[in-house]
């Protein structure tokens, strides 16, 4: 076993461990942090596949942006941990059994034949100045233009939907009207009242 293989098995093991911790750990903040670990290990595995751009994007986008946002939300929400865990143990035996069976069956089907390691010869090494990013960019805007545009449309829909579902204009919210503020006259704010001076008693 050379170093490459060792590194792969190490990261893969960490990935599986972190992923299972995400769904079993009690505290949602810890679960989110384990998810960060899972993303890191996945990025490392991708790096070994020479997919540097994707791997760096995974770290930047998911770990850097999405998970931080997620942590914020988890910390801001008052989540009742007891209720969250309700029914987990109840469904664990049957669910676990089904999951183990499924994994075993899939391993039997996929572990052999056309997906075996000997079927996939190692690709020729790429030149040192080969740019993964450039290659991706080239096909993204030529061959895959149409799906790329549809993906952009999906993001637009996500924005529209998120705003439609969450933005509320409250009737009692107070906001300023700059136009009115500028046009205000002294008379609108100050009222001079003539009063006779009071006599000292």
């Amino acid at each position: 076993m050379d170093f490459k293989q060792l590194a792969f098995y190490f990261f893969a093991a960490v990935l599986v461990f972190a992923a299972s911790m995400v769904i079993t750990v009690r505290n949602p903040v810890r679960a989110a942090l384990f998810l960060v670990l899972a993303f890191f290990s996945a990025a490392a595995v991708w790096m070994q596949l020479h997919a540097e751009f994707l791997s760096i994007t995974l770290v930047l986008v998911y770990v850097g942006a999405v998970m931080v946002l997620f942590l914020f939300v988890v910390m801001m929400l008052d989540i009742n941990l007891v209720r969250l865990r309700e029914g987990f143990g109840e469904y664990l035996p049957i669910g676990g059994l089904v999951a183990v069976l499924l994994v075993l069956e899939m391993a039997i089907v996929l572990g052999s034949g056309p997906f075996g390691i000997e079927q996939m010869p190692e690709p020729a090494p790429l030149p040192a100045d080969y740019s993964n990013t450039r290659a991706l960019g080239r096909v993204l805007y030529t061959q895959y233009l149409y799906p790329f545009e549809i993906a952009a449309l999906i993001l637009l829909v996500a924005i529209v939907a998120a705003i439609a579902l969450t933005m509320r204009r409250r009737k009692d919210s107070k906001y300023q009207n700059p136009g009115k503020q500028i046009q205000v006259q002294r008379g609108d704010r100050v009222r001079l009242v003539k009063m006779r001076a009071e006599k000292k008693s």
């Binding site: 895959y144 549809i150 579902l165």
Partner: peptide, 30 residues
């Protein structure tokens, strides 16, 4: 997009586009 897809990728993206819109529409009555 789904109706005129000739690639698994476009078929899937069309499906997701449709589904996302419908999920949001179902929840529109907040």
């Amino acid at each position: 997009v789904m109706a005129s897809a000739s690639h698994f990728l476009t078929l899937y993206l069309g499906l997701e586009l449709l589904s996302l819109c419908v999920y949001a529409m179902v929840a529109l009555q907040r």
